[in-house]
Design a protein around this nucleic acid. Structure first.
Length: 385
RNA sequence: GCUCCCUUCGUCUAGAGGCCUAGGACGGAGCCCUCUCAAGGCUUAAACACCGGUUCGAAUCCGGUAGGGAGCGCCA
């Protein structure tokens, strides 16, 4: 600031805040752009008792052009720019001045920021020029808007990245989603981190603001749930289970649950909720589900399966499936008439992964316990049959 | 108000004058598959904001209009 003061690129201004406000109000009244009118530009004598601010002496003639990497040339008439304050009356520097000095000191080559900064750029370029420093390259990225197309705010949900983890999203999904906002590489939708790094080119960034589409983020998240490493994803599921009060340390089981639930969960939060029954006894049956599936009519099938599963040689999905088929063949029931009661017996509700996979993960002990509980439930409701 | 920016399906986007009867993706609809829920497969509806130019030819270039956004602090 002292340097600019010395070579005449800046000057002291003694105008009071009140004076400035009056000036602005007057200009607004005349439907002009509110701006400092440069009244202290020529002043040489200090005003007694007033601590001055330092203003940058902006060029009054000519144009300043931003060679923007995404917008192309953006031209401003210098006459539009007023003399901004670079140091407050207490001597501290202001934003537009500090960015320039900082960029200069750090030898910044590229300034990439939101396009809400476009209007600040010509001022900053003029300061660079006054300082005799080469300007960095500028790239102004389009804004990201909320799902309703209005400005992003706390009301639009997750503004902090950590919120996304809490909501059950994977970092690669969030990254993949974000990179496709305002940028594209042909028709490609899925990008690994390596691809993002290799393929990203500022030239492919587009100019218009984009609205967040939560459904697409969900879709990407599920894509990464389906294709990610089950061991790693199992740990993530464990984290979410812990959040709902379930401490699970069995990494093998967690990975198995992830594999089984991947195609029916869009977030880990949902997956954790839908997977509780794998890890803890459920409190009550879903009333409708129990009424429809745990009754006198389905009791024989439940008993039959109980017997078959008790004596099953190796507890695998394939073996369980074979037992199911055998039960179906002997009883003449449709597969669904056996599977669904089993599902309710074992999970408490109507939704779960395929029944054979579900039982395999649950294990023989838990399965048999819950089958007994279900048979009990039917008998106590209807009396012994 | 002034200055600047932006404008292709609901949304994210492809598209650099003829390849566009405008492509892909999410979401929607329908069908298929199926032990639930899903996932998956197939099919389908859906857009170049508007008006003028330039050109043999415009979503693509130019001008205007409309609409949206940002900035206009001793804030950052």
């Amino acid at each position: 600031a002292q340097q600019l003061l010395a070579d005449g690129h800046a000057y002291h201004c003694y105008c009071s805040k009140q004076e400035l406000e009056e000036m602005r109000a007057e200009q607004m009244a005349r439907k002009q752009k509110p701006r400092y009118d440069g009244r202290c530009r020529q002043r040489t004598e200090p005003v007694a008792g007033v601590a001055p601010v330092i203003r940058f002496r902006n060029p009054q003639q000519g144009q300043t052009v931003i060679h923007d990497l995404v917008h192309g040339d953006i031209i401003f008439d210098n006459a539009e720019l007023d003399d901004l304050i670079i140091a407050r009356s207490d001597g501290t520097p202001t934003y537009n001045f500090t960015v320039v000095v900082d960029d200069m000191d750090m030898r910044i080559t590229h300034v990439i920021r939101g396009d809400d900064h476009i209007n600040n750029t010509p001022r900053q370029i003029n300061i660079f020029n006054a300082l005799g420093v080469e300007t960095p390259r500028y790239a102004h990225l389009p804004m990201i808007l909320g799902p309703d197309g209005t400005k992003l705010s706390k009301r639009h949900g997750a503004v902090s990245v950590m919120q996304y983890r809490d909501d059950g999203f994977l970092p690669e999904a969030v990254l993949n989603y974000l990179v496709r906002l305002g940028w594209s590489h042909g028709d490609q939708e899925i990008f690994s981190r390596e691809e993002m790094v290799a393929l990203f080119d500022i030239a492919d960034v587009n100019k218009s603001a984009s609205a967040i589409n939560p459904d697409k983020l969900l879709w990407l998240n599920q894509h990464y749930i389906k294709t990610g490493d089950p061991a790693r994803l199992g740990a993530e599921l464990g984290w979410h289970l812990a959040r709902i009060g379930l401490e699970v340390t069995d990494a093998v089981k967690l990975a198995a649950v992830v594999r089984a639930q991947a195609e029916r969960a869009k977030t880990f939060k949902d997956m954790a909720l839908a997977s509780r029954f794998f890890f803890e006894e459920f409190a009550d049956y879903d009333a409708q589900a129990a009424a429809k599936n745990l009754n006198a009519e389905t009791l024989p099938a439940l008993r039959d399966m109980q017997a078959r599963l008790t004596t099953l040689e190796n507890w695998s999905a394939a073996a369980i499936h074979a037992a199911l088929e055998a039960c179906v063949a002997e009883s003449g029931l449709k597969l669904g008439k056996v599977a669904q009661p089993l599902r309710v017996a074992v999970s408490g509700g109507t939704v779960s992964p395929p029944i054979d996979a579900t039982l395999e993960i649950l294990g023989r002990e838990m399965t048999l316990l819950r089958l007994a509980r279900a048979i009990d439930h039917v008998e106590s409701a209807a009396g012994p049959i």
